[in-house]
Nucleic acid binder design. Structure first.
Lengths: 143, 143
DNA sequence: TCTTAAATATGATTTTTATCATATTTTACT
DNA sequence: AGTAAAATATGATAAAAATCATATTTAAGA
């Protein structure tokens, strides 16, 4: 459903959502290990997310990655789109250009309502929401 | 959501469901073109599906691919699993080994019910069903 | 039985995705 | 100012997925 890059990005950003703040920056190596992702790979991804202002970073000693309170309002879908691009997630199951409810492909009606519902949730749910679930013990931080 | 291979497989098998029969076999090139898939690529996929007895074929002049009436009862999910393997579709969104409803990852509850519903439909819906939809004009054959 | 038309088997090439490595830049601290 | 610790930029390598190519096998029909 998602590329590895997107999975890794979500894991890392969630880790930051729970463990970081402007006063508590986290180095790449201290993110990569607990979320179980290759260090160099996640570094590249985090750098890209930082450039797109989805996460924050500072260089040098005492530096690292973190989320501002604004960035805690980021929607899950924004992360997906930042990493994989808009198309990947929203295209037709069979990748037909002109598949839509008026001209549905053969699988369209099997998934349309559910896919929409999932989409809505991903567009609505913020990192702050997910952090809260984790802190309440309703879900787990991935490793 | 699906690999290209799976998308192509579904397109091709649907094309056979609508256009072929034991008396009406179809050659690779006459499948590849209308469904808009590279000929050599779809050839490989169809050969694999034939080996797994999801479609039928005969060699030589007047040969080609076709579906038996038994094979029209194949479920969409069986095609997906035949091409991509069982894992790919049924794994956790974040690919966590031990994600489940008792120990859910952070995205689990965002998609669980809907993913299940989609799964059920894919496991239930046969090629014959989809053919009927197409012939009634309720959906379109992909190109 | 010979020729031809089809799938089959096999594998080579290309493209994309994932992973690894390193030199450069920035910043905190002495 | 100088040193060290961090991200950043860039690119190399490896692995997987997608695509292309071709020799072999099988079967129909002359």
């Amino acid at each position: 459903m998602f590329s590895n890059s997107t999975k890794y990005a979500i894991k890392a950003v969630l880790y930051l959502a729970v463990h970081s703040s402007e006063e508590q920056k986290i180095m790449i190596k201290d993110i990569a290990e607990p979320i179980n992702v290759p260090k160099h790979y996640i570094a590249k991804i985090l750098q890209a997310l930082s450039k797109k202002d989805i996460i924050s970073s500072t260089k040098g000693p005492k530096g690292g990655f973190y989320l501002t309170s604004d960035q805690l309002q980021t929607k899950v879908m924004q992360i997906i789109e930042a990493v994989d691009g808009e198309e990947r997630f929203n295209s037709c199951l069979l990748s037909l250009e002109k598949c839509n409810s008026d001209n549905p492909c053969s699988l369209h009606h099997l998934v349309f309502d559910e896919k929409n519902k999932i989409n809505e949730r991903l567009k609505m749910t913020t990192l702050k929401d997910l952090r809260q679930h984790i802190m309440r013990g309703e879900s787990i931080l991935p490793l």
